[in-house]
């Protein structure tokens, strides 16, 4: 507001006097504006930016949890980090996890939402069933999954054997452990995505489908392409970014089920951070991992705001 009035005033009145009075008036308003922003800014500083700056600062030190003093060591933590094979394994595993879980959870969530939406009865029952994993504690659910995936008496292998297929030691095998975790990750994220997609589907005007039908979009696929998918654009962007960020944060299943093993095949960023920071007490090093993690999350957020700016808005 004040910006606008100042520019207009300056453009309209070329005389020096008015120009001198305007900034005074403007600065008074600026003071008020700053005063009003202060509480929120202070909160943000204390709760978000402060800790963030703290973590970044910590990553330049050799601080160890509980140590009486620390020294600034510059980029040494990062040098160690980038030289460490475990870090690269963790990063690769995390990215693989994200690349598998995000499309899986988004597509499955959308498919289930479409099925529930097109169904006539038991809608709320299905909704509840698919939403259960979101409400349940993942740690507790991980224990259930451990039983399900048990090589000898697990349900999954039992079913595979019943179908005459070879069984796997899912979580104990290097080649399958990460994919087993991905499956659990998808299972856990699907419900949340489904609820978001359902909300998006409900808000699509029915008349658009009727118009599509009249316009000749007779197949379900044609109507999906013409109406559903574009109208879900904003929801989809949001769901992809949220799933992406949550997948980057994967920790609980890894910690409970595999501890990053076997032989680091399921080591992921946050788990590395946890082991370094809370088991080996190398807080500075853990902070450096956190910063790397934050860079990825920030990237995702930037992509999202870029997409949002590009106009997925409709009136």
């Amino acid at each position: 507001m004040s910006d606008g009035s100042m520019t207009i005033g300056a453009a309209v009145a070329p005389t020096g006097t008015t120009r001198r009075t305007l900034p005074a008036h403007g600065s008074r308003r600026t003071h008020a504006a700053y005063a009003l922003v202060t509480p929120a800014a202070a909160l943000m500083l204390v709760m978000l930016l402060g800790p963030l700056a703290g973590v970044i600062a910590l990553s330049f030190t050799d601080y160890q949890l509980g140590a009486p003093q620390f020294a600034w060591i510059g980029l040494a933590n990062y040098q160690d980090l980038f030289a460490d094979k475990v870090f690269w394994t963790a990063l690769r595993n995390t990215l693989a996890y994200v690349v598998i879980v995000v499309p899986g959870a988004v597509i499955a969530g959308l498919a289930i939402a479409l099925l529930i939406q097109s169904g006539t009865s038991l809608r709320s029952l299905y909704r509840t069933i698919y939403f259960l994993p979101v409400m349940a504690t993942l740690i507790a659910m991980a224990v259930v999954w451990e039983f399900m995936l048990h090589p000898q008496f697990g349900l999954v292998n039992g079913m595979l054997r019943g179908a005459g297929l070879p069984a796997f030691a899912w979580l104990q095998d290097r080649s399958t452990a990460l994919y087993a975790l991905c499956a659990i990750g998808i299972w856990q994220a699907v419900g949340f995505n489904m609820v978001l997609f359902l909300a998006g589907l409900v808000s699509i005007p029915k008349q658009l489908y009727e118009a599509a039908e009249i316009d000749g979009a007779s197949s379900g696929w044609a109507r999906f392409r013409l109406v559903t998918w574009p109208m879900l654009g904003p929801v989809t962007t949001f769901v992809v970014v949220i799933s992406g960020i949550r997948s980057f944060q994967v920790f609980d299943t890894v910690h409970v089920l595999t501890k990053g093993g076997p032989s680091k095949s399921t080591e992921v960023l946050i788990h590395s951070m946890y082991t370094e920071g809370f088991e080996f007490f190398r807080s500075g090093y853990a902070a450096a991992i956190t910063v790397v993690f934050l860079v990825f999350v920030l990237l995702l957020t930037l992509i999202k705001s870029r997409l949002a700016d590009r106009g997925v808005h409709y009136t």
């Binding site: 005007p205 008349q207 658009l208 009727e210 118009a211 599509a212 013409l226 109406v227 574009p230 109208m231 654009g233 409709y314 009136t315």
Partner: peptide
């Protein structure tokens, strides 16, 4: 249609 039902993304 009364609401015109134009596809908003097109």
């Amino acid at each position: 249609f009364q609401s015109y039902a134009l596809y908003p993304h097109l």
